[in-house]
Design a protein around this nucleic acid. Structure first.
Length: 284
DNA sequence: TCTAACCTGATC
DNA sequence: GATCAGGTTAGA
């Protein structure tokens, strides 16, 4: 569910509300959802230095270099509640805070994970290995060199967290619509002149989604409430509605195994150019 | 590089 | 009852 803008919103809210407070312990209510990295033995309580985002991960930074790392996956949510508050269903981890509050990890589908890592275990954590750079920190050359070498579809390349990390299904569709590129177009056939507008689309869409607190289309909530970027979606979730720009019907197809929305008028399909020479090629 | 699998719940 | 969902990954 949550992609870069939603995770950024959650991290900012946690930073504002938890910085300077303490974690007094962690209770795991469903086996495996929470684990400490091997050899990590926290001595609670630990002060909270702050919260931030990396890719789609929420990092809660504690004293001594320890970090509580949360991946929300599809349906995970972090909520600050009074310890007296009734536990809502699917509450799998309770992170006890000072002041009779706790940070609760709720996740109906149970795909999400919470991990406690030390400086020694953080780098090897499976969360972090082979995570690509932040899309908002890339320049045109960086984007082209990471994405433009893939022989997969441009959508698959944008979703590949090893290439760049943080874009998910909603924002991939919105970005490609804004850039006028068909989601099935092979990434290595994007023309040199198109990287500029693709990068502008990446920045504009992710930044305005962050400004609006992300997209709330089913159950996503930051600790401060729902986002509103869903109102700005041009194609995602608008199957059969007219394109705001050209009036053609938005279509939904399957690309990279994901439901994919696009405008056939604004994002015309372009065939892969026939290879002129059987030269060697590499991917990644 | 694609599919199935991991899960539950909402909607068709 | 079948299908789909904002993510990732192991396996073919």
């Amino acid at each position: 569910m949550p992609e870069l803008p939603e995770v950024e919103t959650v991290a900012r809210a946690l930073d504002a509300r938890l910085k300077g407070r303490r974690v007094e312990g962690v209770e795991c209510r469903f086996p495996g959802v929470y684990e400490a990295g091997s050899g990590v033995r926290p001595r609670w309580p630990l002060g909270i230095l702050g919260a931030r985002r990396r890719a789609k991960l929420v990092l809660l930074e504690l004293d001594g270099g320890l970090v509580l790392v949360t991946h929300l996956r599809m349906t995970g949510a972090l909520k600050i509640e009074s310890v007296e508050a009734v536990l809502e269903p699917h509450t799998h981890v309770c992170i006890r805070l000072d002041g009779d509050e706790e940070l609760r990890f709720v996740d109906p589908r149970r795909f999400g994970r919470v991990r406690l890592e030390s400086p020694a275990t953080l780098a090897q954590s499976s969360f972090f290995t082979s995570l690509g750079p932040e899309p908002l920190e890339l320049d045109e050359e960086g984007l082209a060199s990471r994405i433009g070498v893939s022989r997969a579809s441009i959508k698959a390349a944008l979703l590949d967290q090893r290439r760049i990390a943080g874009i998910g299904n909603i924002y991939a569709d919105e970005i490609l619509y804004a850039a006028g590129i068909h989601p099935r177009q092979p990434a290595d056939t994007v023309r040199p002149g198109e990287w500029k507008s693709l990068l502008e689309s990446v920045r504009r869409i992710l930044n305005s989604a962050i400004e609006r607190g992300g997209s709330t289309i089913r159950d996503y909530r930051s600790p401060e409430g729902a986002g509103s970027y869903q109102d700005q979606h041009q194609v995602f979730g608008r199957t059969d509605e007219p394109c705001p720009a050209c009036g053609k019907r938005i279509r939904k197809i399957r690309v990279a195994g994901r439901g994919t929305h696009f405008c056939p008028g604004c994002q015309p399909q372009r065939r892969r150019r026939r290879r002129s020479a059987p030269s060697s090629r590499s991917s990644r």
